[in-house]
Every structure is written in structure tokens, then in C-alpha cells.
Write a protein that binds this DNA or RNA. Structure first.
Length: 276
DNA sequence: AGTGTATCCTGCAGGC
DNA sequence: TGCCTGCAGGATACAC
């Protein structure tokens, strides 16, 4: 599910709800979402206070005092739902996996139907290493068209597969990879190294445009994704190719096609995105 | 190096 | 209604 825009929307909604709160205890309902032993997780989190809520790629980062960091990867169906005693009624949590209980009442629930998501509590140093391993933030200053072009030149992968690799660019998933390629007029199977400077510029622009527009719309809800307030995102109707196979392309009228490679569906318009 | 496949899990839509 | 298959915003490990 959640890609960068969904994670960003969750972070923004979570921040005012949990900033400054102190975690009294954790309740692990499904230990398989933990990337570390349950004991270590509980011990590291207990008694810590939330100093900040950030995003890195598709991950939600909760900074705690004492140099602790809770890193949440939402997987396909993960949600972070705050329920504060003095706040509005808590959104539905149908599949709670981990619950953080705050001093003075209220909680933050990591809910995940399929449990592909992960939760862990790291030290600042451990998290830094993990973050270094990831590619640049596509909406940040270190992501440039020139850098993208140079990075693409080193890979023989199909461009869509390349975009899904978090070590290359952080936060792009299958929906926005397909949308960005459509905006850039690049076929999803085109070899990364054959994307020329002009193509890299168009792709750079396409990635930024679609991610920013999706953030502005509060993300894309296909089924499970919800904001921290429990609301669905509003970007789905604006998707140009993802999930639209058989429909006419809004730009040129050609029929949008679906193909499968790399184990995932790819959607593209044969008219706007020719394969050389 | 890159690709296909399988794995983790649940739920839903569509065909019969 | 029930049963089956295929599919899903992710990530990783494995054999070629």
C-alpha cells in the first residue's frame, strides 16, 4: 500500500496527535510484525517520550528521547491510528498488531491486515545506517535530474523495476512508478541505462509532480489506506494509468494496457509511452 | 547483474 | 450460497 505520499500524510496527521506523549507500555498482539525480539522492543520503548514524527521513503519515523527511534514500514495494509482519550472517536482498528499506550491515556495502534508491515525500535545510529542505505528523497534537494540520469546509466533493469528499488530512490512504489513513467512518456520496460538526459529530466519532473499532487490529495486509497484521521485519500480518481487497463488514455485515447514483469503489474499507454 | 519464483498474510472480486 | 482462482500500495531470499 502506502508509498511516499501516504506515509507523508500519515506523518502529518500523527504529529499533532502524539508529539510530547510518553509511552507507558506496549502491547504486541502479532509479534510477526516486529523486526526484533519482543523483549528488546518493549524495553527500548517503555517510558520514552515522542520528540518528533518524520518520514523517510515509505517509512514513518517516530523519534523518542534517549536516542531511540521507532521505525514503521507500513507494508501493504499497515495503518497508524492514534486514539486519544480527549480527541475524537478513534478510527476503526480491525487488525491491531502493536499498541503503544500513553501515560495519561490514549494510544497509538499499528493496524495491519496482512502483516507485511514491520515495526522496530532502533538507536539513532542503527537508524542512520538504515537510512544511508536508502536512495535520495525524491522531493528533497539531493534528488536531481542529473543525478538521476547518472544513476540510471549504471543499470540494465527495466525502468519500472529500477524505480521500485528503495536503494535508488526512496519512497516510490508501484502506483507512482507507473504514473510517473506515464507523465514522462517512458515505457515501463525500457532499460534504465537507455533513458537519455531529456528522458531523465522528464522522469525527474514526473516523479516530483505525481508525488506532490498525491500528497496534496492526502494519498491514494485503493482499499486499505487511511490517514491518521481514518479518512481515505483522494488521489485515486486522478490516477492516469494505474488500474486503468482497458480504458482509453486521457491524453491520447489509446487503450491503457497491463503487462506483468518483475512479479508486478505495470500499466502504460502504448500511444504516450512507446517502446522505441 | 538481473530475472523469475516463492515467501510472509488476509480479504475481496469474479467465474462457475 | 459455496468453492475456486487470481489479485493486491511491499520486501526479501533463493536458484539460475
Amino acid at each position: 500500500m502506502p508509498e511516499l505520499p501516504e506515509a507523508e500524510t500519515i506523518v502529518r496527521g500523527l504529529r499533532p496527535a502524539i508529539l510530547g506523549r510518553t509511552i507507558r507500555a506496549t502491547e504486541v498482539i502479532h509479534a510477526d510484525v516486529l523486526r526484533q525480539p519482543r523483549r528488546r522492543f518493549a524495553d527500548r520503548v517503555r517510558g520514552r517520550t515522542v520528540l518528533g514524527v518524520e518520514r523517510r521513503g515509505k517509512n514513518v519515523i517516530i523519534r523518542l528521547d534517549e536516542d531511540r527511534v521507532v521505525a514503521v514500514n507500513l507494508g501493504m495494509t499497515g495503518r497508524l491510528l492514534p486514539s486519544l482519550d480527549d480527541g475524537p472517536a478513534p478510527p476503526d482498528s480491525s487488525h491491531p498488531a502493536v499498541r503503544f499506550r500513553f501515560q495519561g491515556g490514549g494510544a497509538l495502534v499499528f493496524d495491519d491486515t496482512r502483516r507485511f508491515g514491520t515495526v522496530e525500535c532502533l538507536t539513532g545510529g542503527e537508524w542512520h545506517l538504515r537510512s544511508e542505505w536508502m536512495g535520495p528523497e525524491p522531493l528533497g534537494p539531493s534528488f536531481t535530474a542529473e543525478g538521476l540520469h547518472a544513476s540510471l546509466a549504471a543499470s540494465r533493469s527495466p525502468i519500472r523495476s529500477w524505480l521500485l528499488d528503495q536503494r535508488k530512490v526512496a519512497g516510490v512504489g508501484n502506483i507512482y512508478a507507473n504514473e510517473a513513467l506515464h507523465l514522462a512518456g517512458i515505457h515501463p520496460e525500457q532499460q534504465a541505462r537507455t533513458v537519455d538526459r531529456k528522458g531523465a529530466q522528464a522522469l525527474h519532473r514526473g516523479i516530483r509532480r505525481v508525488l506532490q499532487a498525491a500528497i496534496d490529495a492526502g494519498g491514494t486509497t485503493l482499499r486499505d489506506y487511511r490517514t491518521a484521521e481514518g479518512e481515505p485519500g483522494r488521489y485515486a480518481p486522478r490516477l492516469l494509468v494505474y488500474g486503468r487497463d482497458g480504458e482509453p488514455c486521457g491524453r491520447c485515447g489509446s487503450e491503457v494496457r497491463r503487462i506483468v514483469f518483475g512479479g508486478r503489474s505495470a500499466f502504460f499507454c502504448p500511444g504516450c509511452q512507446p517502446l522505441d
